[in-house]
């Protein structure tokens, strides 16, 4: 592969011509993307426009058909030798996934584990770190997301907003370089959205690099450094929040924003 997007050391993630099809449907159509360290990027766009698929490709939960992704100068999913790319095995892919933390629309907490066990699972089982040390960190993380009193609660005993905050703590416990959020508040009752956005706002303020798929335009305008509008598997428009959300140059963006606000 002759593509080489390596630019400044400030770039954490680069995607070039990333393409993904499901049968005859093109979910991602040659997507190019660069994210700098510490940047908060919000992705908006109608349902089915490929936002989730993009995040899932970045974290290799979905395989993409063409294109390449680099995270922290490391090629994702392949080992490069000259112009030849060798597919990585399961273990190497699992190791690469450590770079990204992911927060899902439906939380996906491990149902058979308590909140504390959910947060400790990765560091103990995957990173093989000492349990006592991990426990202290997990307790601190749960405190950071405002759940100090819920250590021993199982997911089924928590509200959606609480579950999502545990999920954020679980992802942070792996000390990722990048956090991916896929509509983290879309499955929540309206009164619970705020508590999750507050945690995300704090995370952004702490300097975490974040890619957030969201329909919360207020949050995007306030927190994002840059907003991307996707439609039909392509990035249609990208720019500062005030520009993309305030005076979009594309008609499709205008229509979408009008539809969300109505």
């Amino acid at each position: 592969m002759s593509l080489d997007p390596r630019q400044s050391a400030q770039t954490l993630l680069s995607a070039r011509k990333v393409t993904k099809t499901f049968g005859s449907l093109t979910a991602l159509d040659a997507v190019d993307l660069d994210v700098t360290r510490g940047e908060v990027l919000c992705i908006i766009g109608p349902s089915g426009s490929g936002k989730s698929t993009l995040l899932r490709c970045l974290n290799q939960i979905e395989r993409f058909d063409r294109g390449a992704i680099w995270i922290d100068e490391e090629l994702v999913g392949y080992r490069q030798d000259g112009d030849t790319l060798y597919e990585l095995d399961d273990r190497a892919i699992a190791r690469q996934r450590l770079a990204c933390g992911m927060v899902f629309q439906r939380f996906n907490l491990f149902n058979h584990m308590t909140a504390l066990q959910n947060v400790m699972e990765g560091p103990v089982t995957v990173l093989k770190r000492p349990r006592q040390e991990v426990r202290q960190e997990a307790i601190a993380l749960l405190q950071r997301v405002g759940l100090s009193d819920k250590h021993d609660a199982y997911p089924a005993q928590l509200s959606g907003g609480q579950q999502q905050r545990v999920a954020i703590a679980r992802a942070l416990a792996m000390k990722p370089k990048l956090m991916l959020f896929d509509e983290p508040t879309s499955a929540l009752d309206p009164e619970l959205v705020g508590e999750v956005l507050t945690v995300m706002r704090d995370l952004a303020a702490s300097g975490m690099t974040m890619i957030v798929v969201t329909h919360e335009l207020g949050f995007a305008r306030e927190v994002a450094d840059r907003v991307i509008f996707m439609d039909g598997g392509r990035i249609v428009e990208t720019g500062a929040p005030d520009q993309v959300l305030g005076e979009p140059s594309e008609q499709r963006t205008r229509d979408f924003i009008a539809a969300v606000l109505s």
Binding site: I61, A94, C100, F104, N108, F110, N111, A167, A171
Partner: peptide, 27 residues
């Protein structure tokens, strides 16, 4: 067991055998 459990386990860097043993089979 919901596919989301596997995806969450993948996202914290678990390899396939560990996901089976720690996440999927217990549920």
């Amino acid at each position: 067991v919901d596919q989301g459990q596997t995806e969450a386990a993948q996202s914290i860097g678990m390899a396939r055998p560990t996901i089976m043993r720690r996440i999927v089979l217990p549920q």
